[in-house]
């Protein structure tokens, strides 16, 4: 039976030596991270190996987790690093995952979190499922975290180590790309 403890409380137990509690953390995060990996990487076999590596890294580095902060962005950050490294190793995606990104160089006007409405969200998710693999990884990741993992701008910024305004810009650009793809499909 799943415990009623928070992620942070379970992480604290594991830090104190309760290895079995780590299994519960994995059970909570495995579906979320697996979905994140599949939508970001589009390779089921690779995702499985990477996910195992993410949990091993999370365990190894668990004592660096600050209990006063939220566990979710911490483990997603580990996953983000693993996934980005995996993309860099791929020939086709290497150019799309650069070490330096102009999006984080210049300031952007503060982007407000937009409410798309329930119908709009459904439509967007459906379009994302169809076209996500064709979108640049930096927009793909932001869209996945926002629409499927339902994270807010601040959490996404924390995971990707970018300014909050950059998250807003990437979401806007990602949505524009998606809209163009949908329109292109309708015209065809």
């Amino acid at each position: 039976m799943p415990s009623t403890k928070t992620d942070e409380e379970i992480a604290a137990s594991v830090q104190e030596g309760d290895v079995d509690s780590f299994r519960e953390l994995m059970e909570r995060y495995e579906p979320k991270l697996a979905r994140y990996a599949r939508r970001f990487l589009f390779d089921v076999d690779e995702s499985k190996d990477l996910l195992q590596e993410v949990f091993i890294k999370a365990y190894t580095n668990l004592k660096s987790f600050d209990r006063s902060r939220r566990f979710s962005p911490w483990i997603y950050r580990i996953a983000h690093n693993e996934f980005v490294n995996a993309l860099r190793k791929r020939k086709n995606d290497r150019d799309n995952v650069s070490i330096f990104d102009f999006d984080v160089l210049l300031p952007h006007p503060a982007a407000k979190e937009t409410a798309d409405g329930e119908a709009g969200q459904k439509e967007l998710r459906a379009a994302l499922d169809r076209f996500l693999s064709k979108i640049d990884p930096k927009y793909r990741e932001t869209l996945t975290l926002y629409y499927f993992d339902e994270m807010d701008y601040r959490e996404i910024a924390e995971i990707m180590h970018v300014p909050v305004s950059t998250v807003g810009v990437r979401l806007q650009r990602g949505k524009t790309l998606l809209r163009k793809m949908v329109e292109g499909e309708n015209v065809a």
Binding site: F22, R23, M26, E27, A34, F55, Y59, T60, S64
Partner: peptide
């Protein structure tokens, strides 16, 4: 089944000592 495999793999790595928690002083 897939989830179980991943979780068991990780727990096994921890129990066998392949994955060790780094001490606080390391960080």
């Amino acid at each position: 089944q897939e989830e179980k495999e991943i979780n068991n793999g990780v727990i096994e790595a921890i129990r066998s000592g392949k994955a060790k928690m780094r001490p606080k002083w390391h960080f």
